[in-house]
Amino acid sequence: QEPLTASMLAAAPPQEQKQILGERLYPLIHAMHPFLAGKITGMLLEIDNSELLLMLESPESLHSKIEEAVAVLQVHQMSESSHKSA
């Protein structure tokens, strides 16, 4: 798969840009967190496209962002379940 560039992304409509980024991010995230990949990808798509492009080029920054997202997701899920069980 050829690397995604800013000009390739800019050629697509805004809504489709997130779709394209998501399709690139998902398999990378799935390799690390198969059960949370969809949710984590959804979270990361909140980030600016330019930053997402940089993350796709830099596995280290992508990995740290994924771990950050997992931590946020776990806290969120814990607070949701404590609300429900209260």
Binding site: P14, K18, K39, L45, E80
Partner: peptide, 26 residues
């Protein structure tokens, strides 16, 4: 007033149109 945070974050599904954040400004 109910909270809508239960479904956060929206889940990305490969091959399906992404409409998690419809209010993105170009």
């Amino acid at each position: 007033s109910g909270s809508s945070s239960v479904n956060w974050p929206p889940e990305f599904r490969p091959g399906e149109p992404w409409k998690g954040y419809p209010n993105i400004d170009p």
